[in-house]
Structures are given as C-alpha cells and as structure tokens.
Amino acid sequence: MTQEVKTYKVPTMADMAASGEEPEILFWVGCAGSFDDRYKRVTIAFVRILNHVGIKFAVLGPEEACTGDPARRAGNEFLFQMQAISNIQVLNGYNVKKIVTACPHCFNTIKNEYPELGGTYEVIHHSQFLQGLINEGRIRVKDGESFKGRRITFHDSCYLGRANKVYEAPREVLAALDADLVEMKRVRANGLCCGAGGGQYFKEPEPGKKDVNVERVEEALGTGADTIAVACPFCMTMMSDGVKNKNREDSVRVYDISELIAQGEGL
C-alpha cells in the first residue's frame, strides 16, 4: 500500500508559550503513556488522531510529572500532595483550561482531586474526546483497516466507569468501527477490576487462589472476542498479561480504543 508521508507534530506548552500561543487542549500523557513501551504506542496513536483532525493541542513534555494517584491510594498523602501541588503550579502557570488524558487514573485525580488543591480544569478522558470527534463527523473510521467480522469486547476501567460513570463513551467509540461488540457478564457499574488499581500495579498481589487479571481475562475470552479493548494503561498491561497467561496471545489482542480508531482511520 502506498502511503503519503505524513508528519505528525507534538508541540509542548513551552513552545506554545514562547510563540505566544495557547492550545485548545492540553494532552496529559501520564507516566505509562510516556515510559511504558506498550502504552507509548497508545500515546502515539492518540497524537496522530489529534494531528489528523487538526486540533490545536500541546503536551507538557518533560514538565509533566506523576499526578500522585498511586501514592495517594497506597496511603502516602504527603507525596500525593507534593506531586499535585507542583503539577497545579505548572498547569496554572500555563493558564491551562482544558485537559484530555488517556489514563483514567490521571483523569480521576486531576478532575476530582486537584480542585481542592487549587487546580480546576475541564478534564475529559480520551474516550469522551474521541466520542465527540466521531459525533461531529471529524473521524469517519472509513479509510483504514476494516473490522468486519471481528469481535471486540470492552473492559471497563474502574476509575473511568464506577469512579466517574463514563460507561457509554468508550462503547460509542467502538461502535463507530464495523465490528461486533460483545459484552462480558460483569460490565459497567458491575465491571470487574483488572487487579491493578489502588497501588496493586506496583507490588506483588497478596496471597490468594488466583490473580485478578486472569479471572477477568477468562471472562473476556468467554465472549469469543478476538480483541479486548481497554481505555487505561494499567488495564492494558493486566489484560495483556492475562492473555499471555492463558496462551492466547496469538489469537487475542489487547488494544486501547484510540489505537483501534487510528487503525480504522488509517493513521
């Protein structure tokens, strides 16, 4: 397939400020999106979509730092507030008004927990942002890969779903693809955690009979789906590991919703 050479740009807030510009939206990449090899691909997919639809966006780049979420949930309030207050200094310094992020933990923390510490922004998750682009017709998901005949199941992230009641946006995004959407038994408000929240991602699980991600992946595989769609970096790792644990990595893939959209859009 011949493809025209596109150049995608990733402007930083510092660049924008230097040229006296203000972006429409700040893309908060998050630690996983910046450092985790698998999730960097999600960051890149989302940046390509942002370029493709021509939105004036920026990232903080090296000025971004962990929101403090894992520290807070593990019980270290000091460290959380150090991170939060420093981040708020940076965000307010750039006069940021609207933030989009592909991480539900960053989303929840900035949206719900930063206001009390002096950081009030309009915060949306990338699933909501993509839903908006699709509804406005700015993404048609027609020019790329076809999803005909594929079965996709969506795994709800706790901090997107239960924590903030965002259940429809990721599903509407997936509905734009011409794939079959199949639901697991435990979905939406009853969705089963991937096992990574509350700091679990950063330690070995406590003794038990089974790992949570294996329990969840078994449920996902039970739907007969060939693609497990996620909308969270931690769910991404946990579900991918679960699929490997079940020796199904050849037939079942785990993708973030923005990757699927980028594939459908040929980006």
């Binding site: 596109k6 450092f35 971004e64 730092a65 962990c66 593990a74």
Partner: peptide, 28 residues
Amino acid sequence: AMFSNIENNMAPWKFSPSDRFNWAEQVN
C-alpha cells in the same frame, strides 16, 4: 520503591525525568 521513584523521577518507575518526552521521537 514506587514512592521514591515518584519523589525522585516524577514517575512510579525508575526512569529519568529528562526521558519523559522521548516517546515523541517515535511519532513519525
């Protein structure tokens, strides 16, 4: 270990904060 990474590297993993934006090199 996660706490000290956040404190020193601004991320829960032991990566250098100056490498945080390296992903952008792969965007094209």
